[in-house]
Computed example of a mutant assay.
Amino acid sequence: MAMSPSGPSVKFLVNAIHTMEELKLTGNHLKGSRPILTFSSNFDNEPRWMIMKEIITQIFGTPKDHRKAKPFHDHVFVFSIVDDHIWFRNYQISVPHNETDKVDRGGLDKMTLIEVGPRFCLNPIKIFGGSFGGPTLYENPFYISPNQIRSLEKKKKAGKYAKKVKAKTRRKVHEMSNTLEPDEFADLWKE
């Protein structure tokens, strides 16, 4: 994600993607309606989260007088920080059908949120000073690339195979050094 043309930009790894079809979510919202963006209070604790909040607001927020946007809100984008990852959820604002179309300001307790999806997790890797590059402002020290994870898994499997081969050779050496004496009853039933 980047603020063009001058930056800053953030490089993420997108994890835990769940689509609407996969989760069998029942909600729905109108095309072109503007979302309400909500952020957890953790976004105001550190400068890196403040930068990410501003970039997300610039990307997902709809300008107020945009010609294709509807003049109302019927869904909520929720961004929250858990374990240094940004979790995204999308909820529809639902009003009971037997009520009138417009709800009073005091009638907010009648509204409910229904998850419409998709949902995903953003793992921040680096924050750059420019747009898609430039000086590195932040680098995640706990980030491990998927290639490194796959490489470690392959090494574990290779080690398992090597252990099996060593065990076989040890067994053969043991059998050769401790040979069994011929059994006197081995040919008893062969007649």
Rank of each mutant, 00 (worst) to 15 (best):
D101E: 15
R48A: 06
H66Q: 08
G106H: 10
D74H: 09
D109E: 14
I93W: 00
D104G: 15
D65M: 09
I114L: 12
C121N: 07
Q92G: 03
N123C: 09
D65C: 06
P124E: 09
K70E: 09
V116Q: 04
R105M: 12
D65Y: 09
T57G: 07
V76R: 02
W49C: 08
G117E: 04
P63E: 09
H75G: 02
I59V: 13
L113R: 03
H73N: 11
I114E: 11
K70V: 02
N123T: 15
D83V: 04
E99A: 14
T112E: 12
P47A: 07
I55V: 15
P71S: 09
D104P: 09
F79K: 06
V95M: 10
P96W: 10
W49K: 08
I51H: 00
K70F: 05
L122W: 07
R48S: 12
V116K: 03
K70R: 12
W87K: 13
L113C: 00
M50W: 03
N123D: 12
G61V: 07
I56T: 06
F79V: 05
P124H: 07
I114H: 06
P63W: 00
D84V: 04
Y91W: 07
I86E: 01
H97W: 10
K110P: 00
H85P: 03
G61Y: 05
E99T: 15
R67T: 15
T62V: 15
P47S: 08
D84Y: 06
R67H: 15
Y91Q: 01
P63D: 11
R89T: 01
I59W: 09
N90W: 01
V76F: 02
V116M: 10
V95L: 12
W49G: 06
I114R: 09
D83W: 02
I55A: 00
T100I: 11
K102S: 13
G106I: 05
K110Q: 14
V76P: 04
V76Q: 03
I51L: 10
E54Y: 10
I86M: 05
